[in-house]
């Protein structure tokens, strides 16, 4: 069970939240993107073993989105930051592409 420090509500159990998957994925221009680029955008994921930058939604709370940096092996929450913010620099990798 994760304890998630929602930027608006404070610490709550993870069952109040839903995970929106990998964060910082930029949508390519649908007019110029090739099939391969579009497939990459839609389906391909980093799915790292270790540091992961992801989006979370406080669905049973304030219903606000935010970003989280989390270790996918230990489940340690390493950073929580706003939905429009860039990922912080952390040991083990950087978010975004």
């Amino acid at each position: 069970m994760l304890l998630i420090d929602c930027p608006w509500c404070g610490e709550r159990e993870h069952s109040e939240f839903s995970c929106g998957g990998e964060g910082h994925i930029a949508r390519p221009d649908p007019k110029s993107a090739s099939d391969a680029e579009w497939a990459d955008y839609l389906f391909m994921r980093k799915n790292p073993k270790g540091l992961h930058f992801e989006r979370w939604f406080h669905v049973n709370g304030c219903r606000m989105w935010f970003h989280m940096a989390r270790d996918t092996v230990t489940h340690e929450v390493l950073a929580i930051y706003g939905i429009t913010e860039k990922p912080p620099k952390l040991d083990g990798g950087e978010g975004g592409r």
């Binding site: 069970m1 993870h14 069952s15 270790g50 992801e54 989390r70 489940h75």
Partner: peptide, 13 residues
Amino acid sequence: DGFNSYSQQGGVD
């Protein structure tokens, strides 16, 4: 569990 994980443990919920 509804989030990525490589730990062979799941949530009690």
